[in-house]
Nucleic acid binder design. Structure first.
Lengths: 152, 152
DNA sequence: TATTGTTATACTCTATAACTATA
DNA sequence: TATAGTTATAGAGTATAACAATA
């Protein structure tokens, strides 16, 4: 008897999720970074200088957690704290030159990985794949939002 | 100017990865479980009673780590340690009735999630999607293995 | 009063190294 | 001598709660 087709698809997807996590963690480690710290740098790279509050929301962690990550990244010379121009309670976390360089390299890596994975896929099939993935993510996003709404 | 098609696909895939991680962690937490502990239970559910060594390899963590996870799961009544029948150095970690029940429910959830995500996808398109995902995972797996080989 | 970030404290996951009991 | 699992120790990520400075 054959296995449930939908479950097979989900299992393969979870296998891919696991491989991604491992591969990315290994890449980060080569640069002396951890997934959590890289995530913060990545947000900074795409959003520009941000307050701790904004980072906490983007990363979905507590402000306390951001303090620790920024401390670690600052002592590595990847980011620096600057005073907020209008709110003296707040600070702005900014990428240093070193942090910017690291993120630029990571963006290159990112594109190379995309090419490695999808470069040989025919254009039409890639388009369909992207559509399917996007649809799945949207559906999962909605399911999570519903769950959270129900639970509150 | 349009964005690199392959990068868009990768970004959507990573978005899906993130949503999966969050959704699964939230599900586990409702059962009082963490991702790492659930992973161990899941392996046990599929492989049957296992030695610490076998678990460490399956989870890709150190034996020391397994000791801690088994300690926590044992004090929650999810698993128990039994003497190995032939090797007195070793132990066998076994699911208790409570642990088995928890994993059975999780397998049901798993199937329901698969249906939620893929239930409405036409059969042919699901087949193609599964093939693409499997191919991607295989390719990534090979890339990781190559990396590790080069680095040693 | 509410908000921003920090200090204080604690728990989980993870690793390396040293040790015990057994093979 | 090698292997299985544990104790000892340490670091990273995360959370809650209390607090200071500012809005």
């Amino acid at each position: 008897m054959t296995e449930h087709r939908q479950t097979v698809a989900l299992d393969q997807l979870l296998r891919l999720v696991d491989l991604f996590s491992r591969d990315m963690a290994a890449r980060f480690e080569r640069d002396g970074l951890t997934p959590a710290r890289t995530h913060l740098l990545w947000v900074l790279h795409h959003s520009g200088p941000s307050t701790g509050r904004a980072l906490a929301q983007a990363l979905r962690v507590t402000p306390r957690n951001v303090t620790g990550l920024v401390d670690a990244l600052a002592s590595d010379g990847m980011v620096e704290r600057r005073p907020h121009p209008t709110d003296r309670r707040a600070m702005l976390v900014c990428l240093t030159a070193k942090g910017t360089e690291s993120m630029t390299k990571m963006a290159d890596d990112h594109r190379r990985l995309a090419d490695l994975l999808f470069g040989t896929l025919p254009r039409a099939r890639l388009a369909e794949f992207t559509a399917t993935i996007t649809d799945l993510a949207d559906r999962l996003d909605r399911a999570i939002a519903d769950e959270e709404a129900t639970r509150s």
